[in-house]
Lab assay of single mutants.
Amino acid sequence: KRYRAVYDYSAADEDEVSFQDGDTIVNVQQIDDGWMYGTVERTGDTGMLPANYVEAI
């Protein structure tokens, strides 16, 4: 699945990823209600991200 960031996010922990509004997130997997795991296409960084900061595309 592919998602697009709708807000900027700065990683708060080493297992999270930072991204900017408009970034595409690929290979996304749902972890639980609030978190997903995926790769930021622009940077190649992979990690956890907050589900409410992205939307499906």
Rank of each mutant, 00 (worst) to 15 (best):
50 P>R: 11
13 D>G: 15
47 G>W: 02
30 Q>P: 10
47 G>S: 01
54 V>R: 01
2 R>E: 10
6 V>K: 14
18 S>G: 06
12 A>R: 15
41 E>R: 05
32 D>Y: 12
39 T>P: 01
52 N>M: 12
54 V>T: 04
57 I>N: 05
21 D>V: 15
37 Y>K: 09
24 T>S: 09
45 D>R: 12
23 D>H: 01
22 G>P: 02
29 Q>C: 14
5 A>D: 03
10 S>R: 11
12 A>I: 12
20 Q>M: 13
31 I>A: 08
55 E>Y: 09
14 E>L: 11
2 R>W: 09
5 A>H: 02
32 D>P: 06
35 W>H: 05
51 A>C: 09
13 D>F: 12
30 Q>H: 13
17 V>S: 01
8 D>S: 14
55 E>P: 02
35 W>E: 02
35 W>P: 02
11 A>M: 04
44 G>S: 05
1 K>W: 10
54 V>M: 06
20 Q>N: 11
22 G>S: 05
11 A>Q: 06
19 F>I: 05
34 G>N: 15
20 Q>S: 09
25 I>N: 03
49 L>G: 01
43 T>G: 02
25 I>W: 00
48 M>R: 15
7 Y>L: 13
33 D>E: 13
39 T>A: 03
45 D>G: 07
37 Y>F: 12
30 Q>C: 13
10 S>A: 12
24 T>Q: 08
16 E>K: 10
53 Y>T: 07
10 S>W: 12
7 Y>R: 15
57 I>H: 07
10 S>H: 13
24 T>G: 05
16 E>W: 06
32 D>G: 11
6 V>S: 07
21 D>T: 15
33 D>N: 11
46 T>L: 04
7 Y>H: 14
31 I>E: 05
23 D>P: 00
46 T>E: 08
38 G>A: 05
24 T>E: 10
55 E>K: 12
28 V>E: 03
26 V>I: 14
44 G>P: 00
27 N>M: 12
2 R>K: 13
43 T>S: 07
10 S>G: 07
15 D>C: 15
15 D>A: 13
12 A>W: 08
36 M>C: 08
8 D>T: 12
33 D>P: 09
21 D>I: 15
21 D>P: 11
27 N>L: 12
26 V>H: 07
46 T>M: 08
36 M>L: 14
31 I>M: 11
41 E>P: 02
31 I>L: 12
52 N>S: 13
48 M>W: 15
53 Y>E: 03
24 T>A: 09
20 Q>I: 14
24 T>Y: 15
5 A>Y: 00
15 D>M: 13
26 V>R: 08
6 V>G: 05
2 R>H: 10
7 Y>G: 13
21 D>C: 15
9 Y>A: 00
3 Y>P: 03
4 R>G: 05
5 A>T: 04
41 E>F: 07
17 V>D: 00
10 S>P: 06
54 V>L: 11
50 P>L: 06
6 V>A: 06
37 Y>S: 07
11 A>I: 03
24 T>I: 15
26 V>K: 08
12 A>Y: 09
34 G>E: 15
23 D>G: 00
32 D>W: 11
37 Y>L: 12
35 W>G: 02
25 I>C: 04
22 G>C: 05
44 G>V: 02
41 E>Q: 10
27 N>H: 09
3 Y>S: 00
38 G>T: 00
37 Y>P: 01
21 D>Y: 15
57 I>S: 06
34 G>L: 14
13 D>Y: 12
57 I>P: 03
40 V>Q: 03
25 I>F: 11
36 M>H: 05
32 D>T: 13
43 T>N: 05
2 R>P: 08
29 Q>W: 13
17 V>C: 06
51 A>V: 10
19 F>P: 00
10 S>C: 13
40 V>H: 03
47 G>I: 02
15 D>R: 14
22 G>Q: 05
29 Q>R: 12
11 A>K: 09
27 N>S: 09
7 Y>T: 12
47 G>P: 01
27 N>R: 09
28 V>F: 04
15 D>K: 14
49 L>F: 15
41 E>C: 12
24 T>D: 07
42 R>S: 06
16 E>Q: 14
32 D>E: 11
40 V>F: 00
15 D>V: 09
43 T>W: 01
33 D>M: 09
45 D>E: 14
1 K>D: 13
18 S>E: 04
9 Y>D: 00
3 Y>T: 01
55 E>N: 07
49 L>D: 00
23 D>C: 03
27 N>K: 08
52 N>A: 14
4 R>L: 09
56 A>H: 10
26 V>G: 06
38 G>N: 01
52 N>Y: 09
30 Q>F: 14
50 P>Y: 06
3 Y>F: 10
49 L>S: 00
8 D>R: 08
22 G>R: 04
22 G>M: 04
3 Y>Q: 02
34 G>W: 14
24 T>L: 14
10 S>I: 14
5 A>I: 02
56 A>I: 14
33 D>W: 09
16 E>D: 05
